[in-house]
């Protein structure tokens, strides 16, 4: 407390100091009329506001708005990286090809499949972990750390590690399976299993983060509700259904939206683990866009796909927003 007092005092002193220091600066140009004075002061305040906004606005413009605008523009051109001086306008050609492009279609459905599985599974796993850890267990801190640590690791590193673990001949998982008599599985090399293997790894990597958010939510639910329920003789299932879940609703919705968007942006796992294979079964939309733009240098077509991708994500987000509003009402 003592420390607080003295720092408050210090703050007071500083404020005082600033006031005395600034006064002479405010004075030198006394405006002739009261009305103008107000106007110029408002103007000056606005300018100060913009001045403080400027760094953020400039960064936003340079790294977000300009690239978005450029991508939109290039999506109507045949921009090829090797000939940046020879870009011609080709209208809707790129967008027409998106409809024909079998790879785009495959990548789209791969991404949808990934999202539709990952979102509910990761949400439930995160909630389950949070519920477990919220109990007063022994080694609680250890488990919390263990569940959260994959989140802190680089996704690239995690992907490489899991690629080793999934190896049919020498991988950890297959060796464990063999000890219980199950033959080695081609986790990443079979078209039927590759995407599911990536899903399992992604949930393992990502759930820890949402677990922490759920945990914060759980600890926010007032304890007296549970106590009241105990007095009423509620079972633990009833308590979970009628107290815990409603108490977490807003947090769950927030997590739902963020996971959905993140899932749609799937890139690193297939890039590192399967290069989109086998037979394109793990190629995601973003990966297809990346390959087209950088490996095949077709920036025009890649931009067109990026525009379509943005629209898709936008639509999904809007739909989710509408649903959320309904639930609140």
């Amino acid at each position: 407390m003592k420390g607080n007092d003295s720092s408050a005092e210090k703050l007071e002193n500083e404020r005082h100091f600033h006031q005395t220091a600034k006064k002479p600066q405010l004075k030198p140009t006394p405006p002739p009329r009261k009305k103008r004075k107000l106007k110029s002061q408002a103007f000056r305040e606005a300018m100060t506001g913009y001045f403080f906004l400027a760094p953020a606005l400039v960064l936003l413009g340079v790294f977000l708005l300009y690239p978005m605008g450029a991508a939109f523009y290039y999506s109507f051109t045949d921009f090829y990286i090797l000939t940046p001086d020879d870009v011609s306008f080709i209208g809707l050609e790129n967008f027409k090809y998106i409809v024909e492009d079998a790879q785009f279609r495959q990548a789209f459905w791969n991404t949808v499949y990934f999202s539709v599985i990952v979102v509910p599974v990761q949400l439930s796993v995160a909630l389950g972990l949070a519920l477990l850890i919220n109990k007063k267990l022994r080694f609680r801190v250890f488990f919390r750390t263990a569940f959260f640590s994959p989140v802190v690791m680089s996704l690239v590193v995690v992907s490489i590690l899991w690629t080793f673990m999934y190896n049919p001949n020498e991988g950890l998982i297959n060796q464990l399976l063999q000890t219980v008599g199950i033959p080695p599985q081609p986790f990443l090399t079979s078209p039927d299993q590759a995407m599911n293997s990536i899903i399992v790894m992604s949930v393992w990597q990502g759930a820890g983060f949402q677990m922490m958010i759920f945990l914060a939510g759980l600890q926010n639910i007032p304890n007296h509700l549970y106590e009241a329920a105990d007095i009423d003789g509620a079972s633990s299932w009833q308590k979970f259904w009628h107290i815990t879940l409603p108490g977490l609703r807003n947090i769950a919705l927030f997590i739902f939206i963020t996971i959905s968007i993140a899932a749609f942006k799937l890139l690193v796992q297939p890039m590192i683990m399967t290069q989109g294979g086998p037979l394109g079964t793990t190629k995601s939309l973003v990966y297809h866009i990346y390959e087209t733009g950088f490996n095949y240098r077709d920036v025009g077509y890649a931009s067109a796909m990026a525009v379509v991708f943005t629209v898709i994500v936008l639509v999904i987000t809007i739909i989710q927003r509408v649903l959320i509003k309904e639930e609140r009402g």
Binding site: V141, F142, R144, T145, A146, F148, S149, V152, M153, S154, V157, V158, I160, L161
Partner: peptide, 13 residues
Amino acid sequence: YMFLGLMLLLAVA
């Protein structure tokens, strides 16, 4: 704990 665990994981990685 968290720090130690992480260092271990990163080292393995």
